[in-house]
């Protein structure tokens, strides 16, 4: 799948620009996303990596407009432009209005981390898949059921015409995640967001599910955002990658570039903390802890944990520096202007 050279020529399906999301908490306003920018190209896969709490899921939920009630988008834009429809700025839509509901489940679909709890226990899987089909297509109940069975078949569920009437508790975790994929793809979405789709699954199942996701994506020519804390998953599935740290994208570019030649100290630290088969070198965990959103350092948010931090790193936050090949890095080390920034 990874095909870096052609990447630059593809058309952008979704662009997130300078997105800012704030949470209203008991301790006051907390900024969960601060200036996140991303782009997803048509038919390509973007991987978003980072430690837990870095804002990966918030980013995904912002695109779906599924943020919790106490969260609000306070800046930036999310532009969606499909070839045959007028472009939309998702951030400008009413939270539960008709437009975003028309996009959800239809143009955008999402798969969640916990397959055990992401299906309602009181409806059959068939009914839950049909729900989206009936909502977004003109098919009648019988045709919708046919389509549900067809989708279950395509995600390699054995005996789909029987399983369509099964309840979620009768299926294993891997099976349920397949059902989720079938549900998500039942209306042929342009963009599929998978939020840690394999974290809760066994390693053997994980590979199957990732394979399946890629197959389905290729068949539908959909774009995929895969959110994970596992660099291996990114390397295996994604074309582009965005590395996030406390609500910011610190480095982005093609998978080959970023993972092959990381430029941000955080990306490097992440890569060093991943065990590799055959390598005898000691693993080095990323030192220190993620700062609390309530007590953020003043300058670069990674500076307190960074081994190569300079004095400027502690006083002011770096902007994103563009590098060759469409890469960008949010780090003062790449300031070509000699330490003065913008």
């Amino acid at each position: 799948m990874t095909d870096g050279s052609a990447a630059a020529t593809s058309r952008q399906l979704l662009r997130v620009d300078d997105l800012r999301v704030e949470f209203d908490t008991d301790y006051g306003k907390v900024c969960a996303l601060d200036g996140v920018s991303l782009a997803v190209e048509e038919g390509r896969t973007l991987g978003i990596v980072g430690e837990s709490g870095c804002g990966k899921s918030i980013t995904a939920r912002s695109i779906m407009r599924l943020l919790p009630q106490n969260a609000s988008i306070t800046g930036g834009s999310i532009h969606y432009s499909a070839p045959d429809t007028a472009p939309v700025d998702v951030t400008a839509l009413k939270p539960n209005g008709a437009t975003i509901r028309q996009l959800r489940g239809n143009a955008f679909a999402m798969i969640f981390q916990e397959p055990m709890t992401s299906l309602s226990p009181v409806y059959t899987v068939g009914a839950q898949i049909m729900e989206a089909i009936l909502l977004h297509t003109d098919l009648n109940r019988r045709e919708a059921r046919e389509r549900a069975i067809e989708m279950l078949d395509r995600v390699n569920i054995p005996a789909p015409e029987k399983r369509v009437d099964a309840y979620p508790h009768q299926l294993s975790g891997g099976m349920r995640q397949r059902v989720m994929i079938a549900m998500a793809l039942s209306c042929s979405p342009r963009l599929l967001i998978a939020d840690e789709p394999t974290t809760a699954l066994d390693v053997t199942i994980e590979a199957q599910i990732l394979d399946l996701l890629q197959q389905m994506q290729a068949a539908e020519n959909a774009s995929l955002i895969i959110i994970t804390h596992d660099l291996g998953v990114v390397a295996e599935t994604a074309d582009h990658v965005a590395v996030m740290y406390v609500g910011r994208v610190v480095e982005s570019g093609t998978v080959q570039d970023v993972l092959g030649d990381p430029q941000h100290p955080y990306t490097r630290a992440l890569l060093h903390s991943v065990p590799r088969i055959g390598a005898k070198a000691r693993l080095s965990p990323v030192g220190g802890t993620v700062p609390s959103l309530l007590e953020m350092p003043r300058g670069c948010k990674f500076a307190p944990r960074c081994s190569v931090a300079k004095s400027i790193c502690h006083s002011s936050e770096p902007p994103s520096f563009a590098l060759a090949g469409g890469r960008s890095v949010k780090c003062w080390l790449h300031d070509q202007g000699g330490g003065t920034g913008r």
Binding site: G105, A109, E114, S118, L135, H136
Partner: peptide, 10 residues
């Protein structure tokens, strides 16, 4: 989680 799934369906 399944409530979010339902919302994500539109």
């Amino acid at each position: 989680q399944f409530i979010e799934t339902a919302r994500a369906k539109g």
